[in-house]
Simulated assay, not measured.
Amino acid sequence: MTTQIASRDAVRVILADDHDAVRSGIRDALDPCVDIAVVAEAADGDELLALAGSTRPDVALVDIALPGVDGLEATRRLVESGRGTLRVVILSVQGADASILGALQNGAAGFVLKSAGATEMELAVRAAARGENFLCPSIARKVIGAYLEHVDTRDDGTRRLTDRQRQVLELVAKGHTTKRIAQRLKISVKTVEAHRGELMRRLDVRNIAGLVQQAVRMGLLTL
């Protein structure tokens, strides 16, 4: 639909949504970020796939309900194309369990509600550009809450999490970097790294996406 020129070092973003107002809102939210540039906009899945090939974005913000090739299928194709380091963040009106799982299973790096504010949208783009996963806080809280509730009912004491580990997990889910978590909790970066390592070992996952998938397998999220 549209393409723009970005500075050499900016994170290149493509927007895909069939509503002009939604694209405009996201563009306005990201516009103040001098190191993030919206280089293209698409109104359907076919246009997204075509523009992604010609504009070579770093991050794609994709409506899950795109007309034509839908957002989940478009995500799968973009990820499987092996095109550089492109990362996809799914946009949705609501955080249904099946939608979250479908997004992650198709290779999405993140999931954000369309009602998200400018700061949250920026965090999602930056996390994806760094190669990290991002779930909007409301979804992350739901998943983590269900998971921790299950963990606390187990008899195996080694599966229980300390209060500090819970805090670290919640901040990781919100997209905070290790340095930022250390600042928030007033502990050293090395301590945060140690907590993250132990946390992932105890939960037997590598990242928040893995946590969601395990929560589904455990029946905490229903499809």
Rank of each mutant, 00 (worst) to 15 (best):
I181G: 05
L211R: 10
V38W: 09
V39H: 10
F134N: 02
D163F: 00
D155M: 07
R217P: 09
D155T: 13
T158R: 07
A103V: 02
L15R: 07
K190F: 04
K179V: 09
G102T: 01
V125W: 01
Q167Y: 08
N106Q: 10
G131C: 06
V168L: 01
A116T: 05
A182Q: 12
R12T: 04
F134I: 02
V151L: 12
L199I: 03
L101R: 15
T222N: 13
A116V: 05
Q105C: 08
V205I: 14
E193I: 04
A182D: 09
A50E: 07
Q214K: 15
G95P: 14
Q213I: 09
G45N: 05
N106G: 08
V22H: 12
L185K: 00
V143D: 00
S54F: 07
A6N: 10
A129L: 03
G25Q: 10
A173H: 01
L113C: 11
V39M: 13
K179S: 11
T75W: 05
L148S: 08
S188R: 13
D44N: 15
R154T: 10
V88T: 09
M1W: 13
R184I: 11
G145M: 10
A129T: 07
V93R: 11
L169Y: 01
T85N: 12
F134V: 02
V88L: 03
P57D: 03
G84Q: 12
D70G: 10
R23V: 05
E170V: 02
S188Q: 14
E80M: 12
M200N: 10
D152R: 10
F111G: 10
V62T: 13
A98S: 12
D97S: 11
D163Q: 10
G197D: 07
A43S: 15
A108R: 11
G25C: 02
A65Q: 06
L211S: 06
D163R: 13
T119L: 05
R27C: 03
T177Y: 14
A116Q: 05
R126C: 01
L199K: 12
R141C: 01
G110V: 02
A129D: 06
D156L: 03
V38C: 11
A140I: 00
S188E: 12
I144P: 00
I187F: 00
G131H: 06
R166H: 11
S138A: 08
I100K: 03
L15Q: 11
D35M: 04
V89W: 09
A209K: 11
K114R: 14
L48D: 10
E149W: 03
A50Q: 07
L148N: 08
H195W: 11
T222A: 11
R166K: 15
H195N: 09
V89G: 00
V205A: 04
T119E: 08
V216F: 04
E47C: 02
R83A: 12
A37G: 13
L135A: 14
A182K: 15
V11E: 00
H176K: 13
E122Y: 00
I100N: 03
V143P: 00
A74L: 13
G95R: 07
F111N: 09
I208V: 15
G131N: 13
K114V: 08
V59E: 02
H195T: 02
R202M: 10
M121N: 07
A6H: 08
